[in-house]
């Protein structure tokens, strides 16, 4: 479980738009990075945005019910988790870091994908089916993944910035996504706070084109409603603003700049809600809204 001294992980990855150093003695973290971040550049002499360490628990928790701790730049923002969740903890911790660090971006909870330069934003309300739909759009319809969890909006350019990382899947969605052509699903983590959790790797084009931002064009609120048929309904800009605000991690801290950036974004997008009972229905509705096949 713990790597020998000579193989302890210390690597620096370009996880666009950031450079992240990861250090950990856990074999599971090394395996996670090798599986999901194998196509990332490993810059040798770059400025490091986030210096992350996943370390064994303190005191008795080194041996008894062993734990993993997440540290970023020597800050310890979370309580430790059971050691078998060290790898998903890296993803959760990196999400938290990107959302809470003041870096001049507006960050809100949504999946973002791009086609022909235009981006669709799928805000993430729990149970809405955002991640499954996001994986389906990547693997079945050829959309480029910008991010599955974090919409990163640059207030200066008004563009969405890509942060291609593993798509996080929960419970039933793991098997559904696993059957998509080209999907690579990693280790399953049982009994986490979110139930069973696994990740699907981003496509190579998502990593290779990560430096290209995308213009926000559609804002679509997915609503998974089994057995209810499927339909599209328009959402007013005012309502969309309030809903996005709820999903924003740092709009309040961004003050006037954040407010204006979201206003600009809403001025440029069509807002819809889609209700669907199956993945194929959802794909059809997205095609209808975006006029992209």
């Amino acid at each position: 479980m713990v790597l020998p001294e000579s193989r302890v992980l210390d690597t620096t990855l370009r996880i666009a738009p950031f450079v992240v150093r990861v250090r950990s003695p856990f074999a599971s973290v090394l395996a996670h990075l090798e599986f999901f971040y194998r196509d990332c550049e490993k810059p040798q002499k770059a400025f490091i945005d986030f210096d992350i360490r996943l370390l064994p628990g303190l005191g008795a928790h080194r041996f008894w019910r062993p734990q993993a701790r997440f540290l970023v730049d020597d800050q310890n923002p979370f309580l430790p988790l059971p050691v078998n969740q060290a790898a998903p903890m890296f993803e959760w911790g990196l999400n938290w870091t990107i959302a809470s660090r003041s870096l001049g971006f507006v960050v809100f909870h949504a999946a973002v994908l791009e086609k022909n330069g235009n981006a669709i934003i799928l805000p993430g309300f729990p149970g809405a089916g955002k991640s499954t739909l996001c994986a389906a759009l990547c693997h079945l319809r050829g959309w480029r993944l910008l991010s599955d969890e974090l919409a990163i909006l640059d207030p200066v350019s008004g563009m969405l910035i890509a942060n291609p990382r593993p798509i996080s899947l929960k419970n039933a969605s793991i098997d559904i996504v696993g059957q998509f052509p080209g999907a690579r699903v990693g280790e399953r983590y049982l009994d986490t706070r979110k139930g069973t959790v696994a990740h699907a790797a981003p496509n190579l084009d998502a990593i290779e084109n990560a430096s290209q931002p995308a213009l926000p064009r559609w804002l679509v609120f997915p609503q998974f409603a089994p057995g209810e048929g499927h339909q599209v309904s328009p959402v007013s800009h005012a309502e969309a603003f309030a809903l996005i605000g709820e999903q924003s991690f740092n709009q309040e801290r961004m003050g006037e700049i954040g407010f204006r950036a979201l206003c600009t974004l809403l001025g440029n997008v069509d807002c819809h809600q889609i209700e669907y009972g199956s993945t194929s229905d959802a794909l059809e509705l997205v095609a209808q809204v975006t006029q992209q096949d």
Partner: peptide, 21 residues
């Protein structure tokens, strides 16, 4: 300042302005 560290510096400046408001 090079672009990468500048992001952190401008972010901190923005946050401090916001806190002063």
């Amino acid at each position: 300042v090079p672009a990468a560290p500048l992001r952190h510096l401008e972010g901190a400046r923005l946050l401090s302005e916001r806190q002063h408001h």
